[in-house]
Simulated assay, not measured.
Amino acid sequence: MSSMLSWPYPSGALSGYWRPVTSTINWCEEDYYATPYSAELINSLTNLWFIYLAQRGIRNCLSQRHDRIFLWAFSSYLMIGVGSFIFHSTLKYPMQLLDELSMIYTTCILFFATFEHGLEGRNRVLLGVLVGGIAIFVTGYYHYLGDPVFHQNVFAFLTAVVFFRSLWKMEKTLRPSRRMSVQGVSAAEQARRDRRDGDILRAMWKMIPFGLLSVASGFLVWNLDNIYCDDLRRWRRAVGLPWGILLEGHGWWHLLTGVAEYFNIVWSIWLRHCLDGRQDEVELRWPTMLSSMPEVVRKSSHAKIKQR
């Protein structure tokens, strides 16, 4: 179907620059229909969202002097976007590993960040060895198996561990009814701290459902894209370009999970400041829920920004 508002998909695939396909996964987007230089154009381009959010997070970590572990987390998050861009452009197996293993490494970094707080010396080193061992084992065993389901299960398990551990630490640290009272603090000061932490807790509980909804929506679309691939390809060709792009489910997976992982790292940064007792030094800057992305800033920096 062609009209002034759309044009038909090409009748056949172009000769792909990166052929042959060597990856163990080939997604629902048709290969090389738009350009010979990108096997899955939309699946590649949607990773620019990952890259944008990653550089935003890296700049925030540097300018606001957050703990270095989160700079590593955002750097690994950047590699997810870069790796996925290259993978979907080429559909080569080594690039598939770069894409998928970067997801594991980012989660391992957050795993370390979640459990290392309060550890010192030998215990901290042992945790690092454990997390490094997990990353090495998953890398080797996944390469040996070549089964994407193994990668998906490990990623889901590690993510769940990090999430529920962070949730427990958040509630224990910030909810007044669940934390130990501080000796030598006046009643007025304690009341102020309770109000402050209550406000932080409510803000975090706004972030958490937003991130969960993003990843759940992405997971749903990802599965629908796999299950109904033949129908989706037919519908795309029926509506033509550019509207068919909106039916590229794996591209939506990139956009939605990019948001979810960004929220997860920002939440971890804010929680770390709270665990260190620095609630009065930082705040969350999130002007609007639907048209902006949150970031943790030093209150002095925030004041300077407002004065510009």
Rank of each mutant, 00 (worst) to 15 (best):
Y33A: 01
T139H: 13
E29W: 07
V129N: 01
L127I: 07
Q64H: 11
P36H: 06
G57L: 10
Y32Q: 05
A160W: 03
Q64Y: 01
Y142N: 15
W72M: 08
I25Q: 12
F155W: 12
F87R: 07
F112G: 06
G140Y: 08
G146Q: 09
I134M: 13
N47R: 00
A160L: 14
S44I: 07
A39K: 08
L41I: 14
T22L: 06
Y141I: 06
A54E: 07
V161A: 12
G83P: 04
F112E: 01
E120S: 15
N153V: 08
M79Q: 07
G81S: 04
Y105H: 04
W27A: 08
F111Q: 02
V162F: 02
R59W: 06
G128S: 05
L145D: 03
H117D: 12
L91C: 11
V161D: 04
S63V: 11
Y33H: 02
S23L: 08
H88I: 04
W27T: 09
R56M: 15
L127K: 03
G128L: 05
Y32L: 10
S76C: 03
I134G: 06
Y37W: 15
C61R: 03
I42F: 13
R124C: 06
D99N: 09
P94W: 04
Y37Q: 05
S23R: 07
S63R: 15
I51N: 05
M79R: 00
L97T: 01
L158H: 02
E40L: 04
Q152P: 01
A54S: 12
F115V: 02
A156S: 12
G133R: 09
Y52K: 13
R68Y: 10
G81C: 03
A39F: 08
L110Q: 09
Y142E: 10
L101E: 09
T22V: 11
T46Q: 01
V138N: 08
S63C: 08
A34I: 14
R124N: 09
F50D: 00
F157Y: 06
R124L: 09
I80M: 02
S89I: 10
N153A: 05
L48Q: 08
R124M: 10
I51T: 05
I69Y: 00
Q55P: 01
D147H: 12
L130A: 13
M95K: 03
H66N: 05
Y105Q: 00
I58M: 13
V161P: 12
I109G: 00
E116Y: 06
L101H: 06
G133C: 02
Y93L: 15
T139S: 15
V138E: 11
G140A: 02
T107N: 13
Y93M: 14
Q55V: 15
N153D: 00
G83M: 11
F137V: 14
V129R: 13
S102V: 02
V125K: 11
L130K: 01
A34K: 01
S75T: 13
P20H: 01
M79S: 12
T159S: 15
A135G: 13
N60G: 04
A160I: 01
I42D: 04
L130M: 10
T24V: 13
D31Q: 09
A160F: 13
V138C: 10
R68W: 12
P148H: 11
F111H: 12
H151P: 05
C28R: 07
I69V: 14
G140E: 00
F87L: 08
G140F: 11
I109Y: 02
G81F: 03
T107V: 15
D67L: 04
I104G: 04
H88T: 07
L119Y: 00
A156V: 04
F50P: 05
